[in-house]
């Protein structure tokens, strides 16, 4: 078993999940509660990784993070071909799932509950923590789980910007590709099984989370 790939995959997924939580939740709130010019454009951009080939997403990231980009030049951040780049790619592809699911959960909350909190003395921030998030938490969690699962399975964009360096950027999906290329089918079989079991478990859990809403 290629343990370094498993560990690297989990590391990348964990970081991507943290990013998904922060940025995904912020975007979900923005899109469900506020109307602003260009909202549809933001929404479409967030969803774009769902339909674009991973190579296109990877190419954008390559240009955005590589030599000549403002991030590279101004802040002197060199992250191409590191596991951090893999985490960014994984975040981007997981974002649509996180945003869609948690946004639906937030939009489903009776606006009168938030109005009630306002008349009861809550600031906008307090009512997010005390009313909106607790009521939407199953949807938010389900979105996070789906996004994390997608991050775990990320292949194409990661290959483009992080490469396929064993022990450094070679995540489980990339290691499987390598194993098959090298005709090491035993190893491939085991890794495929691990991927499938994890993904199945995660999707099953997310489905249950969405279905068993305690509150109507």
């Amino acid at each position: 078993m290629n343990w370094s790939a498993v560990i690297l995959s989990l590391q990348v997924t964990a970081v991507a999940t943290a990013f998904l939580f922060v940025f995904g939740l912020a975007l979900a709130l923005l899109l469900s509660r506020y109307s602003f010019p260009g909202r549809t454009i933001v929404e479409t951009l967030v969803n774009l990784p769902l339909v674009l080939p991973p190579s296109v997403v990877g190419y954008y990231l390559l240009v955005g993070l590589g030599r000549g980009s403002p991030i590279f030049d101004r802040f002197d951040i060199h992250i191409l071909f590191t596991w951090q780049a893999a985490a960014i790619a994984s975040t981007i592809v997981g974002l649509p799932l996180m945003v869609q699911t948690s946004r639906a959960a937030i939009a489903g909350i009776d606006p009168n509950l938030e109005n009630a909190a306002r008349t009861l003395g809550s600031t906008e921030m307090e009512l997010l923590w005390r009313v909106t998030f607790p009521l939407a938490r199953r949807g938010i969690l389900a979105g996070l789980v789906l996004g994390a699962a997608r991050s775990l399975g990320e292949f194409g964009a990661t290959l483009m910007i992080a490469g396929n360096i064993p022990g450094q950027t070679q995540t489980l999906p990339l290691a499987i590709y390598d194993a098959v290329q090298n005709r090491r089918y035993d190893l491939a079989n085991r890794m495929v099984l691990v991927m499938t079991v994890i993904s199945f478990g995660v999707l099953w859990w997310a489905r249950r989370l969405e279905k068993n809403r305690r509150f109507k």
Binding site: N112, N115, A116, T119, L135
Partner: peptide, 20 residues
């Protein structure tokens, strides 16, 4: 004055109790 500072008791038509 924002709603939170008015100290108005408001009983909504559907009660709007926090279900959680």
């Amino acid at each position: 004055l924002p709603a939170r500072s008015r100290r108005v008791g408001y009983v909504f038509q559907n009660y709007a109790l926090f279900p959680h």
